Amino acid sequence: MWIIGWRKWWIRAKYIAIFVVLTVVLFQLFRLVGGWIEPAGRYREPLGKAVKAFRHDEPVSEPQTAAERLLFFYKYGE
Rank of each mutant, 00 (worst) to 15 (best):
L71H: 14
E68D: 13
I3R: 12
L22E: 04
G77M: 04
A50E: 13
R12M: 03
L32F: 14
G77F: 10
F30R: 07
I11G: 00
A17P: 00
Y43M: 08
P39G: 08
V51E: 09
V25S: 01
W6H: 02
I11K: 04
G41P: 01
E78M: 10
F72V: 00
R42C: 00
K75T: 15
V21A: 15
Q64G: 08
Q64P: 06
L26V: 12
R44C: 04
F19C: 08
A17G: 10
P63S: 02
W36D: 01
Y74E: 09
V25R: 00
A13Y: 04
G77S: 09
S61K: 15
K52S: 12
R31F: 07
V20F: 12
Y15F: 03
F54G: 00
V21F: 12
K75G: 01
V51D: 02
K14L: 15
I18H: 01
P63T: 00
F54M: 03
E38T: 02
Q64I: 14
P63Q: 00
V51F: 03
E58H: 11
I37L: 07
E68M: 05
G77D: 06
A13L: 13
L70W: 15
F27S: 06
K14P: 06
G77Y: 09
Q64C: 11
K75A: 10
V24H: 00
P63L: 01
L70Y: 14
R12F: 03
V25C: 05
V24S: 08
F27K: 02
R42A: 06
K8F: 11
K8M: 06
A40V: 13
F73H: 13
I18K: 02
G77L: 10
P59Y: 02
F30H: 05
I11Q: 04
G48V: 00
G77N: 12
A17M: 07
G41N: 14
L26D: 10
K49R: 14
G5Q: 05
Y76F: 14
V51P: 00
A50D: 11
V60H: 03
I18S: 03
R42E: 12
G34D: 11
P63Y: 02
G48D: 03
P39I: 06
W9A: 05
R7Y: 00
E62G: 01
W6P: 05
